[in-house]
C-alpha cells in the first residue's frame, strides 16, 4: 500500500498564521514493503509527520493518501487506521487492560471485528512479537518486564493486521539486549512483508534496518534516498546536528588515511567484511 504525501504543510493550531509550520511542503512516497527510516533533530517534525499517516493530524494544505484513500475523508479514515498501525514512543505506557490478551484485543474489538476472529488475531499477534499466548495471555500486562510490555503494545497494534507499521523511537529506553531483540523483531516483521516506517535518532538502528532514509530539518525534507547514499553525506548531516553510523565514519577515516574500501559499510559486520576483503585483495596483489 503506497503512502503518498502530496506537498503537505502542517501548522499546529496554536501557531497557525504565526510561527514556522511543523511540516513544510513535504512530498514523499513510501512504496509497499519498504523500510523507511526517518531521522532529524528534536523538533524537526518527525512525530508530526508520522501522525499524518493515519489521520491523527490532517494537513493544513496538501494531501495524504494511503492506497489512494484520501485521509481527509472522515469515513475512510477508520479503514486507514486499520491498515496503518501506529506505535507511539513508550507504547507500554498505553497498556490498560486486566490481561495481556484483553489489551491486544482492544484494537480489533474497537474496529468491530467478529468475536470469533478476535482470539485468533490475538494469538497470532502475540506470536509475531515472540510472545506465547498460553504463557502471557492471561497475565496482567503490568507484571511483565519493560521489554515484554513494549512487545505486548506492539502486538496490540499488529492485532488489526495492518500492512504498514509506523514506529516512533521503538528502541527508546531499552537496554542493549532489548535493543538487539527489538531490531531482530522489526527485521522479521519487515521480512514478513510489512511496510515499516521507523523514526529514530539512533543512526546505528537506522543503518541496520532501513532501505531508505528520510532526513527532516525544520519540518522540511532535507534529504531522502537509499541508506548508504544518505549516510555518505557526512559533512551535511553533521552540519544539521546529526551523526552517521560509526562504521561509515570509520570507513571515511580510513579513506582519509589512504585506505579506500570498495563498499560503503554501514554496520560493523559490513565494515569487517569490507576490511577483510580489502586485506585479502591486498595480499593477493602483494
Amino acid at each position: 500500500m503506497p503512502i503518498r504525501f502530496d506537498h503537505v504543510t502542517y501548522a499546529y493550531p496554536a501557531t497557525r498564521g504565526g510561527a514556522q509550520p511543523a511540516l513544510v511542503d513535504v512530498d514523499l512516497t513510501v512504496a509497499d514493503g519498504e523500510f523507511l527510516g526517518v531521522i532529524g533533530h528534536t523538533g524537526s517534525g518527525k512525530s508530526t509527520l508520522i501522525q499524518h499517516i493515519n489521520g491523527l493530524l490532517l494537513p493544513t494544505t496538501g494531501r495524504v493518501t494511503v492506497d489512494g484513500i484520501d485521509l481527509a475523508d472522515r469515513t475512510a479514515r477508520r479503514e486507514v487506521r486499520r491498515r496503518v498501525g501506529l506505535v507511539f514512543q513508550y507504547p507500554e505506557h498505553q497498556l490498560f487492560a486486566d490481561t495481556v490478551a484483553e489489551d491486544v484485543a482492544f484494537g480489533p474489538r474497537a474496529l468491530g471485528l467478529p468475536a470469533g476472529e478476535i482470539e485468533q488475531l490475538v494469538i497470532t499477534a502475540l506470536e509475531r512479537v515472540g510472545l506465547d499466548f498460553c504463557e502471557v495471555g492471561h497475565r496482567s500486562p503490568f507484571e511483565l518486564s519493560g521489554g515484554q510490555m513494549r512487545r505486548v503494545a506492539i502486538a496490540g497494534v499488529l492485532a488489526t493486521r495492518p500492512g504498514t507499521l509506523v514506529l516512533d523511537e521503538p528502541m527508546a529506553g531499552l537496554d542493549p539486549v532489548g535493543r538487539g531483540a527489538m531490531r531482530e523483531l522489526l527485521r522479521t516483521l519487515h521480512h514478513q512483508g510489512l511496510t515499516v516506517i521507523m523514526v529514530s535518532h539512533d543512526m546505528e538502528d537506522v543503518a541496520a534496518l532501513a532501505d531508505r532514509v528520510l532526513v527532516l530539518r525544520n519540518g522540511a525534507v532535507f534529504a531522502c534516498g537509499t541508506t548508504s547514499d544518505v549516510f555518505s553525506h557526512h559533512a551535511e548531516l553533521r552540519e544539521i546536528g546529526l551523526g552517521v553510523p560509526r562504521a561509515a565514519l570509520f570507513a571515511a577515516r580510513l579513506a582519509a588515511r589512504g585506505v579506500v574500501l570498495h563498499a560503503h559499510p554501514l554496520t560493523v559486520e559490513a565494515l569487517a567484511d569490507a576490511i577483510a576483503s580489502a586485506c585479502t585483495s591486498h595480499r593477493e596483489v602483494g
Partner: peptide
C-alpha cells in the same frame, strides 16, 4: 492519540459507550 490510532472512538456514541471509551485512557 495512541488509543485512537488503535481504533478507539471518543467522539460518537451515547453516554455509556463514551464513558466506556474513557477507561483505556484513565488506566494509563
Amino acid at each position: 492519540r495512541a488509543q485512537s490510532a488503535r481504533g478507539a472512538d471518543f467522539e460518537t456514541g451515547n453516554v455509556i459507550t463514551r464513558f466506556r471509551a474513557i477507561l483505556p485512557v484513565l488506566t494509563p
